[in-house]
Design a protein around this nucleic acid. Structure first.
Lengths: 196, 196
DNA sequence: GACGATACGGAACCGTGTTCCGTTTAGCAA
DNA sequence: TTGCTAAACGGAACACGGTTCCGTATCGTC
């Protein structure tokens, strides 16, 4: 809640009304297009759906990645906030970790193509990388540390590596029904366990 | 060894000498460019390096993916053939599986960007998918079955899924030194183990 | 109602893979 | 050796993607 949330803010005087309206329209159009055509949908398609020119998109979102971030921000936040909650409510830290990773996988798998775009080293998606990493890695780290402290898992796995691994496993999970990302992730988490 | 291997063949009469020479030049140029710029290097770069026009590339290799397949065919073949060999020479099937996966990871990780391109659902890379899947999945399946029969691992993991998982884990392994694909793959294989 | 700042639209640009076609050349025959 | 033709070549042109630019339209204020 740092910007673009005008509903309760006292500031936000500078933007023109039509601009704010357009931004909202764009977010809805993008969300809708992402559902049907995947995250890799052409910018022009989104502009068309929203009934605006491409230039308008770029004024509101400097790059495609910013648009993606904006569309999914809420869900990423929810995922991030679920971490501590699960830790508090689960029997063991390892169970919390498992459930949290499950949430993360849910998120990635349901957004057609998001996982693939998340790892693309295509410069220009830096915003996307940075946002996901900055927001989620600390949460994952907390869960990992708790589980390690409880002696449930090995302590030499960095959150960043695990997150990227899970993210990678989710690539292509939608486009091929034979591929079972969730099971592989499960295996990965199992492999993390210390032979008690 | 079905075509393009003229050295010992009695056939191969139809192609003009310069064409054969160019194909060879192209393969070398592509291999060289792939090493320095990655598998995603522009076709034009490869053409330039080889000193030919882009049209020439497309006459020899109908699509970029065909060129990639041609460049790496030898190594994929070697990997495929290593499967049965490892199974015969290792103490246990699970050890053979581990070593074979290691070979596969070696291959993917050292080819800058190959893993990423391998999974891209970008139609047009079908050739690449098909070749890898057709050639390597049966080998992996054989290793998995042997290990399952020996009671070392769970028997409900399909080779295709495992291979794609391992492939996915290798994505981006080169571009970020903090990411440790090999360790994640190890974890995955560990997770496969039956609690003895 | 007028006017200046703000926002808009979409043509234009750049970098991809791929196709197309006029030009060149290898290889054979006379 | 010379001439001919099918094969191969080169690279301009096309399609398609993200992004930029700028003339035009609109908002909001005076």
């Amino acid at each position: 809640m740092k910007d673009s949330d005008e509903s309760a803010g006292t500031a936000a005087r500078s933007k023109r009304a039509d601009a704010r309206r357009n931004k909202e329209t764009l977010l809805e159009a993008a969300a809708s297009v992402f559902v049907t055509s995947g995250v890799e949908a052409p910018v022009r398609d989104i502009a068309a759906k929203a009934g605006v020119g491409t230039g308008t998109i770029y004024r509101h979102f400097p790059t495609r990645a910013d648009l993606i971030v904006a569309v999914y921000r809420h869900q990423v936040e929810a995922c991030a906030e679920a971490g501590p909650a699960l830790l508090a409510s689960s029997e063991t830290p390892h169970a919390a970790l498992g459930r949290w990773i499950d949430l993360f996988v849910d998120f990635l798998v349901t957004k057609h193509g998001l996982a693939a775009v998340l790892q693309s080293d295509n410069a220009g998606f830096d915003t996307l990388h940075t946002y996901f990493i900055d927001r989620l890695v600390p949460v994952c780290a907390q869960l990992l540390e708790a589980a390690a402290d409880a002696g449930e898992i090995r302590s030499d796995m960095e959150a960043l590596v695990l997150m990227r691994g899970v993210g990678n496993l989710c690539i292509g999970a939608d486009s091929d029904p034979r591929y079972d990302a969730r099971r592989l992730v499960e295996l990965l988490i199992t492999g993390l366990r210390l032979p008690q």
